Simulated assay, not measured.
Amino acid sequence: MRARTLTLAAAAGAALLSAAALPALAAPAPAGSGTHAAPAVYEGSVSASALLAKVSGCNQISNGKYRTDEETSATIPVCGANGAVFWKADMDIDCDGQVTSECNGDTDPWFQDDTAFHTSDDQPLTAARLPYVVVPSASSTWNYQNAGIKGGGVVAVIYNNKVEYAVVGDTGPTAIIGEASYATASALGIDPDPETGGAESGVTYILFKNSQVSPIESHSAAVTLGNQLAQQFVNNN
Rank of each mutant, 00 (worst) to 15 (best):
A116T: 15
A156N: 02
Y132W: 12
C79P: 01
D94S: 10
R129Y: 11
S73M: 07
K65A: 01
T126Y: 00
C58D: 06
V203R: 11
K162A: 13
I176E: 01
T75Q: 09
E102A: 13
P173N: 14
Y66L: 01
K150Y: 13
Q145R: 13
V203W: 04
G44Y: 14
E71L: 12
E217Y: 11
A10V: 06
L125E: 01
Y165I: 14
D170Q: 06
G169I: 02
D193Y: 07
P23R: 09
T174F: 10
Q112S: 05
Y42E: 10
S49V: 05
V78W: 02
C95F: 04
I76H: 02
S45R: 14
T35G: 01
S33K: 03
E102Q: 14
S139D: 03
T119M: 09
H219D: 07
P131S: 09
Y132I: 10
G151T: 03
T100F: 02
K162H: 10
Y66D: 00
A9C: 05
Y165F: 15
G105Y: 08
Y159A: 13
S211H: 12
K54P: 06
T196H: 10
F117R: 08
G151D: 02
Q145W: 07
G57C: 02
A37T: 11
P28W: 01
S201T: 13
T7R: 06
K150W: 04
K88V: 08
S56N: 15
A12T: 06
D90H: 07
W142Q: 01
G13K: 02
L22S: 09
V99Q: 14
P30V: 14
S181W: 08
